[in-house]
Write a protein that binds this DNA or RNA. Structure first.
Length: 281
DNA sequence: CGCCCTGTTGGGGA
DNA sequence: ATCCCCAACAGGGC
């Protein structure tokens, strides 16, 4: 059993990664392990350990290994995690390959290199990592109207920025936020602190419903099938307003409009989701 | 062919 | 708190 490195948190920079190495003939460019941990420390932390549990928190994946070692990964926008057979050729843009003892490999593939990975030593380090980053799980019993109202109270922030902030509600992305707001009939630029009690409840329900659209009948996220041809199209078809500028609102027929909120492309029905009095840009 | 814009995210700086 | 930019690419419009 290898000795644990002294550092408590190892930054495993998946993007870029593994300078100067080739993975089955696939060249990996501009790669390096970032400070403070040298590659040997990463190897030592992972080598010989059993995968005991795979979990999710917000948009993070957690692979828990023996001796309280945790590999925490984020796919960001284009990342993908693949399990391949030993003889299989890793796809282009493979950044990190973890060799498993049965001959298979776990690949982190990411065209844009936004994805991240951290090796955390100990459950305290793991808890701390998420405490500073993530708020309530919206699909848990803790996500009540009361909790949402308490978080929103007094804030002038546009409601869309509030939803995208992972430190309060974990896991709501751009597409999901638009869907939740459309369902709740709330304009994304509305100040979150001004929402009435019934709007807060509608927003809570909208968030839950939008997230459920991303889960298929087997309980797996539809994002699990991203790499399969055609999955992407059917995924987007589930959402009513996102990327549908010009198309008629499914509720009232008014053309969907595109605007910018919280720095992201944002889609609304201008009739169902009334603009706040004070315009902002 | 080149330039410009956009983007399933999050972090840092002004 | 809030806006803006950036990371590193692909893909589409012009």
């Amino acid at each position: 059993m290898p000795e644990l490195p002294e550092v408590e948190t190892i930054r495993l920079q998946l993007a870029p990664a593994l300078e100067g190495r080739r993975i089955d003939g696939v060249e990996v460019r501009d790669a390096r392990w970032s400070e403070p941990a040298p590659p040997e420390a990463i190897d030592d932390a992972l080598r010989g350990r059993l995968i005991e549990q795979v979990a999710r928190r917000g948009k993070y994946l957690i692979v828990s290994l023996g001796d309280d070692v945790h590999l925490v990964m984020h796919l960001r926008m284009t990342g993908n995690l693949l399990l391949i057979e030993g003889a299989e050729h890793p796809p282009l843009h493979t950044r990190v390959a973890v060799q498993l003892d049965d001959g298979r490999r776990l690949l982190f593939v990411d065209v844009r290199r936004f994805g991240t990975g951290d090796v955390l030593l100990g459950s305290d380090a793991l808890a701390e990592y998420f405490e500073s980053r993530l708020g309530v799980e919206p699909l848990s019993a803790d996500f009540t109207s009361e909790a949402l109202r308490a978080m929103a109270r007094g804030r002038k922030q546009p409601v869309k920025a509030f939803l995208l902030n992972q430190e309060r509600i974990a896991g709501v992305g751009n597409i999901y936020a638009d869907e939740a707001l459309f369902r709740a009939r709330i304009h994304p630029l509305r100040s979150v602190g001004t929402l009435k009690r019934d709007q807060i409840e509608a927003l809570r329900a909208g968030v839950v419903e939008s997230l459920e659209l991303g889960i298929d009948s087997k309980g797996a996220s539809i994002d699990d099938y991203r790499h399969l041809d055609g999955a992407r199209g059917s995924f987007q078809d589930r959402f009513l307003v996102h990327t549908r500028a010009g198309e008629p609102c499914p509720r009232c027929g008014t053309p969907i409009e595109k605007l910018r909120a919280a720095g992201r492309g944002t889609y609304v029905c201008p009739n169902c989701q009334r603009r706040p009095r004070v315009r902002r840009r």
